[in-house]
């Protein structure tokens, strides 16, 4: 008897995806019927995510990328996003979605299966987030990509603003996996008046590709 590994996203949207792909034991939704022009809510929970903690983060370079010196600063390189969270902690998000071996250092923890990972992108994205959080995600004093940690729909989240209001807004959001169902429900409910639709990974990849 062989054990087949199946990794499941904690996110389920109402409509079924029209195109899916099996990737690293995940079933990844690539496209939905009637995605429209946005805004879009995209499930990226299959993207590998690591938590990294060490007393001296400066001496480490996850996948060859230097960790930002200041908390709240993010760096995007080759499809990998590194968010400095505090003095001793950083998050490594592989936005390209490809499976990557975790480095052997003990400071790394794979949190892919422990968290839910969503993208809200498209026009009116900030109007949607303003209904769910008092955090100023559209702060003109900050240059994307930047990290804000705080409650979103009353749930502690890591939120990265990848692109601001002057372009096509792109907001990434990660929180504990157990909140996935209610978080998606709250975002879709808040975005209903703005035409928010579930979308597949292809919409996000299309946006990310020129940045890689």
């Amino acid at each position: 008897m062989t054990n087949k590994i199946i990794r499941r996203s904690p996110v389920t949207f109402g409509p079924k995806p029209s195109t899916v792909e099996n990737r690293g034991h995940w079933v990844v939704a690539l496209e939905y019927e009637g995605e429209g022009d946005g805004p879009h809510l995209i499930d990226l929970s299959h993207c590998p995510r690591w938590d990294f903690q060490d007393g001296n983060l400066d001496k480490f370079k996850p996948v060859g990328i230097s960790i930002p010196k200041q908390p709240g600063i993010c760096v995007l390189s080759n499809g990998t996003l590194i968010n400095r969270m505090n003095g001793t902690q950083a998050a490594v998000w592989h936005l390209s979605g490809e499976a990557t071996d975790i480095p052997p250092e003990t400071g790394y923890t794979d949190v892919t299966d422990a968290t839910v990972f969503l993208a809200i992108m498209g026009r009116n994205a900030f109007a949607i987030t303003e209904k769910l959080s008092a955090l100023d995600l559209n702060d003109p004093a900050r240059t994307p990509p930047f990290l804000i940690q705080g409650p979103f729909s009353h749930v502690p989240c890591q939120i990265v603003v990848m692109a601001g209001d002057r372009e096509l807004p792109v907001i990434l959001l990660a929180c504990s996996r157990g909140y996935a169902h209610d978080m998606v429900d709250a975002i879709l409910h808040a975005g209903h008046e703005f035409g928010l639709q579930p979308a597949g990974e292809n919409v996000f990849k299309k946006w990310l590709e020129p940045l890689k």
């Binding site: 908390p71 969270m85 505090n86 003095g87 902690q89 940690q149 705080g150 409650p151 502690p156």
Partner: peptide, 8 residues
């Protein structure tokens, strides 16, 4: 402690 935020 910034429990819902950065954890510091």
């Amino acid at each position: 402690i910034h429990r819902s935020g950065c954890g510091i």
